[in-house]
Every structure is written in C-alpha cells, then in structure tokens.
Design a protein around this nucleic acid. Structure first.
Lengths: 206, 206
DNA sequence: ACATGGTTTAACCATATGGTTAATTAAATA
DNA sequence: TATTTAATTAACCATATGGTTAAACCATGT
C-alpha cells in the first residue's frame, strides 16, 4: 500500500467518522462524507465497498473506544476498591470528555440491529467470560454476590456515561446552555462520582 | 371532529409512534407508517402536514413522558429524603419498564437539532425555573449547595435511565441475551438503586 | 517516449422517498 | 333525494441517494 493510498484511506475514515458519529448511519449521506474528505463520491466505493461497510469500520473503531479496559484493574487484588473506583471513573469520564460524541453514537446505533453486536465484541477483543471474571473478582473484594457486583458495575458506568448521552437536554435544562460551565461540571464529576460510589459502598449493610 | 376522524387520527399516531420510536426520524419511512396504520400514504399528509410535523407530534408526546414530575416531590419539606429517593427512583424506573423504547428514543433524537429543545420543554409544561427551584429545595434538605444538588439529581437520573439506554449492549454482554433475567434485573433496581443512593448520602462528610 | 498499474473523477443509472394531485367514495345537510 | 363537504385512494412527480461505469490522470519502470 502506497503512502498516497494510506493518506486517502485515512482521509476517508476521518471524514466518515465525523459524519457518521454526528448523524448516525441513517442520517449520514455519502455525498457529505465525500465533501468532508474533499474527494469524489466514487472514491468511497473504491476504498470501501459501500455505505454499510464504511460504517462498520467506524462503528468497530468506536465500540473499541467505548469499552473500558477494566478487567485487569477490577481483578487486581492488590488495588484497594477505592482506588479501583477512582481510577475507573476518572479514566472513563476522560474518554468521554475527549470523545464527546462517542456515547451518544454508540447508544444510538446499538438499537439498530442489536443482533450483530456480538461480532463487534469479538473483533474489539472483548471476551464475555473475561468480563464476567473481572466482575466476579470485584464482587469478592466487596463481599458481594455476582449479581450484586453486576448492579454495582452498571451503576458505575451509568454515572459516567449519562451526562454525555443526555447532554443536550441537561445542558439546556440545568445549565442555561452554557457549554463552558457544563464542561467544568463534567470535569468535577471525575471526583464527585468516585466519592459518591465509595460512600455508597462504605455504608452498606448497616 | 367526527368519531371516524378521531379514530383515523389515533390510528396514524399509534402507527407513527411505533415506527418513529423504533427507527427514529431518519430511519422511519412514511410508507411504513401508512402500512402499519393500514391506510394510504396520502392520508398521513391529509391529517398531518408531513413527516416532520408528524414526528414533532410524537416527539412532544414522548418528551412529556420522559420528564418525571419531580419538582413537587423534591420541594416537599415534610417528606424524608429517603422517601423522596425511593419514590422518585421507583416511579421513574417503572416509566421506563412500561415504555422500553422511551429512553433510547429521546436520547437519540435530542442530538439532532438540539436548538429546538426549549420549545418542547415549554409545550410539555416544563418550567426551567421551577425545576431549579425543586433542586434547590432538595439541596437545602440535604445540606448541599445548588451545584452539589445538581450533581446529585443527575446521578439519580443516570442510575435510572442508563440500563434502558444501553440495554442491547448490557443484555448481550452481562446477561447472555436473556430478556427475562434482564427484566428481573430492572425490577430489582427500583430498590437497589434507591438504597445505593441513600447509602451514598448517609455516609457523606465522614 | 511509452506501456502499465493503480488512483481519481465526471457522468450516469435505478431506485427510494417525501410529497402532490385529481378522482372516488362516504357522510352530512338541506 | 339532491347537493355540498369531508375522507380516502391510486397514480404521479421531483428529487435525493447509493451505487456503477468508463474515461482520464499520474506515478513508476522499461
């Protein structure tokens, strides 16, 4: 593959990423992607075989970003649960701050064709058994059943993701559409959310 | 307006609701809505003026369901904060159990044209100042600043909504695609989430 | 200079889609 | 019953859209 080819491929992927993430598969137009990349529409078909294929490429990339590498962390017995939570929450929120449209994009697109999702897991190197193992290990450290640990993990993820998934609504309703203040709020949440969760755990079963 | 008119109108709205909620504005087809309603495509234009108008009607309905009536509850000083949380969480999760596609639909569509959202607020009877007042009152009861209370409210909402917004992903990854078990899990969360939040609050500042 | 290979484009095509129109049927009213 | 009005449909229309094709372009090797 020549340099030129690589460049053009990247050009297309960058343009496609931008358009698809913003508008989704249904809302995106091949012409718009071509324009964004500054190339002809036919080139999209030359490099990728069509809209679906191009989209799959982007979706695969993004779902890779979306899944936090948390198993190793959660399964490490030498790390205190407080530090696990702080690290996880801090890192995960950072990912969404850096990729503001990642969460809405993924949450939107998983509802179209939920059947295919498994394939994306595999190609992104996500092993279902491995994830369950990580949850089990965390549960052990916290004296929880697997089921309780599963609730807990989902709580943690919920608290990280929702402010990004519901951003337009929240920003308008509670932040007077002030983007800067909302960004500060998101930054605060790295600590806020971690402490919230740690407090919730400390007080259990009393 | 005759009975027939009402019937047809409802027929169309029901069909439109189903198709729009499942596929979104971009993914929905007028023909599909007409087929779903068992009528001719032209009737859609006869009753509503076009796709956008029909969609707005549905979106307005759904955003009404989406916003919990929480201000009165949160602002009531005679209700203990524990009961406020239990009531809010229980009711809100129930709404999403009854309307499984409500959360994904709203979260999807607010990212197209975020500017128009304010109008929908107003027409749904949501008063920004009123909401802020409710948050302030809750904050007072919990010895929180407005900013802290805002974090807290968003935490509560996050924990309720995310399992519905991310359902296809979570169900596949952590529930072996078992719908029944997932539904049981969602039911459990009414109590689980409330206790999680109450614990988080009780243990603050220690 | 010329041939060869991959790369890029303009022009085109088939189809889908939202929307319109004019005619038909059903209902209400005089 | 005759006439007007509303509801419904079939047939069209203009355009947008994903995709194709054949020609032009350009770098590289001979």
């Amino acid at each position: 593959m020549t340099e030129q080819q690589k460049d053009t491929e990247q050009l297309i992927l960058n343009a496609a990423r931008k358009v698809f993430i913003e508008k989704g598969l249904d809302g995106a137009r091949m012409q718009e992607i071509a324009d964004e990349a500054g190339i002809n529409k036919s080139l999209l078909h030359y490099y990728f075989r069509g809209k679906e294929k191009l989209f799959e490429m982007i979706f695969q990339e993004e779902i890779g970003k979306f899944f936090p590498q948390m198993v190793t962390l959660m399964a490490s017995p030498e790390v205190s649960f407080e530090d696990k939570i702080r690290t996880f929450v801090g890192n995960y929120i950072s990912v969404f701050i850096k990729n503001p449209f990642l969460a809405p994009f993924i949450l939107k697109e998983i509802h179209r064709n939920p059947e295919n999702i498994r394939q994306y897991f595999i190609r992104a190197g996500i092993n279902v058994e491995h994830v369950k193992f990580g949850i089990g290990m965390l549960g052990q450290q916290l004296n929880m059943s697997f089921e309780e640990a599963r609730h807990f993990i989902i709580n943690m993820i919920s608290l990280c993701i929702f402010p990004f998934a519901g951003r337009p609504l929240i920003e308008k309703l509670l932040f007077q559409e002030d983007k800067a203040i909302y960004e500060q709020f998101l930054e605060e949440r790295k600590k806020m959310v971690a402490e919230f969760i740690i407090n919730a755990l400390k007080n259990r079963n009393i």
